Simulated scan of single mutants.
Amino acid sequence: MKLRHNKKRNTAFIYEALIVEATVSMLKKDQHRHKKCVSIIKKHFGIDKILSKELQCYKSLYENQNLNEENSRRITTEARIQYKKINNSQIFELQTGLINDINKNLGNSVFNNFVPNYKTLATISQLFSDTTSPKNKVILENMIVNSMTLDKKSSDVVGVDLTTINIFANKFNDKYDNQLLPEQKELLTYYISSFSDNALSLKTYLNEEISRLKL
């Protein structure tokens, strides 16, 4: 099954791409660009913003892990109900403003940032879309539920990944221990671990930093 997907009209993808951009700019010590990223995130994804409400519908599906099938399906159903309450025309208009803001202040390259869970975000977008057929919605929902449910086989894979991550982290620390500022080391620690927890720790850390910064 192959469905069309426009990543620039995927609010969750844009948000994740901005998080990546903010992370990279911080590591490069580009405070000016980092502040621009933070400003855009705050402006368009504030608590009471419509795009924030849409983003929460996405997050409820791609940030929930290790759940049983029953809870996964209940969350998926509720996310779809909540998403339908959001006006699609408003979403499109606000996305346009967000895209223009990014192009003007950061450049189109932001949309080329690597987002590890891009395929999952695309699947969720297609599930929420009114143009997706009932048959495809059922298939997409099963795909999402499977991604939210951790079985023994995937658990074994995670174990291997964690071992690899620990080896990489140790080698990285040995090489760059005296070359990075404490805050850069902390950020990199979260970034390295992001591959094992769907970036939950990284995004929590960045959200705290964004809230702390005074623009």
Rank of each mutant, 00 (worst) to 15 (best):
L18Y: 12
S39M: 10
V38C: 03
N71V: 11
E78A: 06
E54R: 11
N100V: 12
L67M: 06
E63G: 02
L27F: 14
Y62K: 01
N103E: 14
N68T: 13
S109H: 15
G97I: 09
E93S: 08
I40N: 00
S25V: 10
Y62I: 01
K43M: 04
F45V: 07
S39C: 05
Y15C: 02
L106G: 04
N64D: 02
I91Y: 07
I91Q: 00
L27T: 12
K84G: 04
S109D: 07
K49T: 14
K84I: 09
Y83R: 10
R80W: 09
S109Q: 11
V110P: 00
E21Q: 07
K42H: 10
K36W: 06
E63W: 09
C57E: 08
N103F: 11
N108E: 13
D48R: 12
G97H: 14
S89W: 14
K42L: 07
F92C: 00
L51H: 07
L61T: 09
E21L: 02
K49I: 07
I75F: 10
F92E: 08
E63V: 07
Q31V: 15
K36C: 02
Y15E: 02
L67N: 01
F45S: 02
S60L: 03
Q56V: 12
R73W: 11
V20I: 14
R33D: 02
E78Q: 08
K42S: 05
K59F: 09
K53C: 04
I19G: 00
I19Q: 05
Y15K: 04
T23S: 10
I99W: 06
Y58N: 00
Q65A: 08
V24D: 03
S89R: 12
E21Y: 04
I40P: 00
H44E: 01
G46P: 01
S109C: 05
L55Q: 03
S109L: 08
N108Q: 13
D101K: 06
D30Y: 15
E69D: 03
K28R: 15
N68Y: 15
I19L: 06
N105V: 09
I41A: 02
I75R: 01
E54G: 04
E69V: 15
Y62V: 02
K104R: 13
I81H: 05
G107L: 08
T77N: 07
I40F: 05
K29A: 09
E54T: 13
Q65R: 12
K42N: 11
K29G: 04
